[in-house]
Design a protein around this nucleic acid. Sequence first.
DNA 1: CGCGCGCTTGAATACATTCAAGACAAGTGG
DNA 2: CCACTTGTCTTGAATGTATTCAAGCGCGCG
Lengths: 260, 260
Amino acid sequence: MITVSQTYSRQGDRQCAGCSLHSTCLTRGLSKADLEAFDDIMVQPQPLKRGQELVRQGQSFHSLYLVRAGSLKKVMRLPGRHDEQVIRFYLPSETVGLEAIGEAYYPASVVALETTFICELPFEQLVSFAEQYNALRTELMRCMSRELRGDQRQVCLLSGRSTAEQRLASFLLGLSRRLHARGYSRYRFQLTMSRADIGSHLGLALETVSRVMGRFQRQGLVNVSGRELTIRSLESLEALGEEGSGLIGSPDDRRMIACR
Amino acid sequence: MITVSQTYSRQGDRQCAGCSLHSTCLTRGLSKADLEAFDDIMVQPQPLKRGQELVRQGQSFHSLYLVRAGSLKKVMRLPGRHDEQVIRFYLPSETVGLEAIGEAYYPASVVALETTFICELPFEQLVSFAEQYNALRTELMRCMSRELRGDQRQVCLLSGRSTAEQRLASFLLGLSRRLHARGYSRYRFQLTMSRADIGSHLGLALETVSRVMGRFQRQGLVNVSGRELTIRSLESLEALGEEGSGLIGSPDDRRMIACR
DNA sequence: CGCGCGCTTGAATACATTCAAGACAAGTGG
DNA sequence: CCACTTGTCTTGAATGTATTCAAGCGCGCG
């Protein structure tokens, strides 16, 4: 049996050094010269097709992955339950597998939502490489810390008994922000995941997602046709998320703190 | 104005070297000799009283903290909402502040639930110290990774539309497990947090927590009187959490994977 | 062309929430 | 020492939001 999954590696001349995502990716602390050395430990496997698993829950940990293009979902099955939950979605330049470092295996599966290009970083090699590169260690720590913040934000959203509207608004805004930070349009993008995926991620039934999406459409907040989304009013969506009792600057609103 | 918050530092002869939590704490990779050097960067502020803040949301980041004794809750207020959500609880030997490393400030507040003793690690000093100690860097990474896993588990629990029973059972089991790993009883412990805190953490109203707790009591699963908890049947609690359709080893239950 | 999947929409149901009242314990001040 | 306050928890009844079940639609793919 022949493994073809790594035949794409080292085909072109420049790898990381020419990558447009460099400034937002794990490598952003590295200089052009450092990047060439970094290329030596990086592997570019064949692209994943929609539905293919990048890693599988329970599989033993060996590599981190960087998303070069495309998108994926992280899904997890709790011990006794037979249904999977979507934990998060991955966009280009994000790092897959950080939660697996501490133990020997990946605690969740990661599945491509569309044709997706990946950079693989064998962890052992990454660690020895990082011993000489301060900046890389720092950046790795920052990545993990940022992911912690994101997950905790999600816990906050889910445990606060927010309405379906608030959850979906918050989700769409989050996607918009992340895409925009990566150079895509803030207003117009593809939802590469199904309604069921969105629902699972937000703790809602897929029917509810569908209904609320329709409501948003009728209210003129967005335009949706299938998985094509256009945001018509960022402000209104934001107002939805931030609303609650709707008090802005109320007497006991002592200290408003940004928390992204 | 005199700061008294650090007067406890360096009072005794041995610090980390004599600490019973060494084997579960961030320092566990360090030898006895290394620990003495480590003591130089560690500070032991005065103990916190119930309700006191260890860090406040929005405050600029400077230190990590290790819980030496006691317990705390991490609470977060999303931008526009006026109510706080409990993100997680901290027990002895756990590390506070990891999610703040990536940015300049703490994204959530951490508040003592009872009289609590803390070790403070000024981050700058920790980082330079770690440059010479491979094991410490590794352990820090593991800590963050483990916290990621924990948070993602929580996301999974919350976004899965599990019942109040399942959530509370899972919560109690989690506490039991963590306490046991730290040398406390697996069956009998104090709930140092209020019903409201538990509810906030699980995405339930405090009344629901109270009701379900009562139900568990009547079913003989636990004994509760106020904040004193005794688990009568670990197995039944586990069965509750793992239930769903109740199928164990069902045909399409292809691969049962541990995921703690 | 027909099948299947993903999405939408409707009606009935269920679960947890909300509102409200009361119990209980601990702490405070007269 | 007692009356009173305060905070936390418990319990009941009514309400509501999202779910579940079910049917139908549209589109892409084989």
